[in-house]
Structures are given as C-alpha cells and as structure tokens.
Amino acid sequence: MSARAIAFPRPRTPDYEPFASMNITPLIDVMLVLLVMMILSIPMMTHKVPLDLPQPGKPTSDRPVIHLIDLDAAGTLAWDGAPIDAATLQSRLAAVRSDPDTEIQIRADAAARYERFDQTLAVIERSGITKLGFIGNERFKDFDAGK
C-alpha cells in the first residue's frame, strides 16, 4: 500500500473576514436566568401579614387603664400581680373588652414554655381584645449587635 497525501482545499479568499452577525446565545441565557429569578421572587414580595396598626388621632383619655398579665417560668398566670387560672382570665378579659381605654400587656418569663404562652395568647384572642402589648422584649433589641 502506498501512502497518499491529503490535500486540503485552499480558502477562496486570501483574507479571513469577520462575521457580520453577533452571537446572541449568551444574552438569551442571561435573560432566561433573570426571568426565572423574577418569577421566583414575586410571590415573596407580595406576601402580606395583616396587621392592625393604631391610627393617628386624639386619644380618648389622658391615661389608659393598663392591666398586666404575667406568665412565670412554672406557667402560672397573674392578673395585675394576683394569681389567676385560665377561666378567670377569660372572664376578666370579657369584662374589660368593652372599655376602649383599657390596654392589656403581657409579660412572660424567659424560662416560660412557649406552649403555655401560646395558649394564653389564644385565650386573649378569643376574648376579642384588640389592644395588646408585649413587655420584656427590650432585652432582645441588641440581639445581633455582637455580630
């Protein structure tokens, strides 16, 4: 067998000319990635939490009546310093619900079980109280300051 030389055809023009069109495939890839990111982020931006905030205006009285509910580490409730049970709490909340100048504040011990705190909040919600404040959260205002 004899070896044959392979000849490549010569280009028709001696100078190679640049293409006159642009490669748009990377642009389409970037556009599709941005479109997918937008589609995924839209539901998060439209998520709303219904919250009734106080409206500006003149208060009905100078000093509102404030009742304090304490929850200690053992799960015992106290109304203005006097120990009470859940049934008594319901009746007292029903009695103060009609007074628009009454505010309820709840303070929970740091060692209190969250389940008991959640049950107390459920009792307050079922009673129809709309003015509720949380006491003791000030200790968490600088929670991430050490980072």
Results as ranks from 00 to 15, higher is better:
Met1Gln: 09
Met1Gly: 15
Ser2Cys: 04
Phe8Tyr: 09
Arg12Val: 13
Glu17Pro: 01
Glu17Leu: 14
Pro18Gln: 14
Pro18Trp: 02
Phe19Lys: 11
Ala20His: 05
Asn23Pro: 02
Ile24Tyr: 13
Ile24His: 10
Thr25Cys: 03
Thr25Pro: 01
Pro26Tyr: 04
Leu27Met: 12
Leu27Tyr: 05
Leu27Gly: 15
Asp29Gln: 12
Asp29Phe: 11
Val30Gln: 13
Leu34Arg: 08
Leu34Met: 13
Val36Ala: 15
Leu40Thr: 02
Ser41His: 05
Ile42Asn: 04
Met44Trp: 10
Thr46Tyr: 03
His47Met: 14
His47Trp: 06
Lys48Trp: 02
Leu51Gly: 00
Leu51Phe: 12
Asp52Phe: 02
Pro54His: 04
Pro56Asn: 06
Gly57Asn: 03
Gly57Tyr: 02
Lys58Ser: 09
Thr60Gln: 11
Ser61Asn: 08
Asp62Gly: 08
Arg63Ile: 12
Arg63Phe: 08
Pro64Leu: 06
Pro64His: 07
Val65Gly: 00
His67Glu: 05
His67Gly: 04
Asp70His: 06
Leu71Ile: 14
Asp72Ser: 06
Asp72Asn: 15
Asp72Glu: 06
Gly75Phe: 00
Gly75Arg: 07
Gly75Ser: 07
Thr76Ile: 10
Leu77Gly: 05
Leu77Trp: 07
Leu77Ile: 08
Asp80Ala: 07
Asp80Asn: 15
Gly81Cys: 05
Gly81Gln: 04
Pro83Asn: 14
Pro83Val: 13
Ala86Glu: 14
Ala87Val: 09
Thr88Cys: 02
Thr88Tyr: 00
Leu89Thr: 05
Gln90Phe: 00
Ser91Asn: 12
Ser91Lys: 10
Arg92Lys: 15
Leu93Asn: 02
Leu93Ile: 00
Ala94Arg: 08
Ala95Tyr: 01
Arg97Trp: 02
Pro100Ile: 06
Asp101Arg: 08
Asp101Lys: 09
Glu103Ala: 12
Gln105His: 13
Ile106Gly: 07
Arg107Ile: 03
Asp109Arg: 01
Asp109Trp: 00
Ala110Tyr: 04
Ala111Phe: 00
Ala111His: 03
Ala111Gln: 11
Ala112Asn: 08
Tyr114Met: 08
Phe117Thr: 03
Gln119Ala: 15
Gln119Leu: 11
Thr120Pro: 03
Leu121Phe: 03
Val123Arg: 08
Val123Thr: 15
Ile124His: 04
Ile124Leu: 10
Glu125Ile: 00
Arg126Cys: 00
Gly128Ala: 06
Thr130His: 11
Lys131Asp: 12
Leu132Ser: 04
Leu132His: 03
Gly133Thr: 01
Gly133Lys: 07
Phe134Leu: 15
Ile135Tyr: 10
Gly136Glu: 05
Glu138Phe: 01
Glu138Ala: 14
Glu138Leu: 09
Phe140Arg: 09
Phe140Lys: 04
Phe140Val: 06
Lys141Asn: 13
Asp142Gly: 14
Phe143Met: 13
Asp144Lys: 12
Lys147Gln: 10
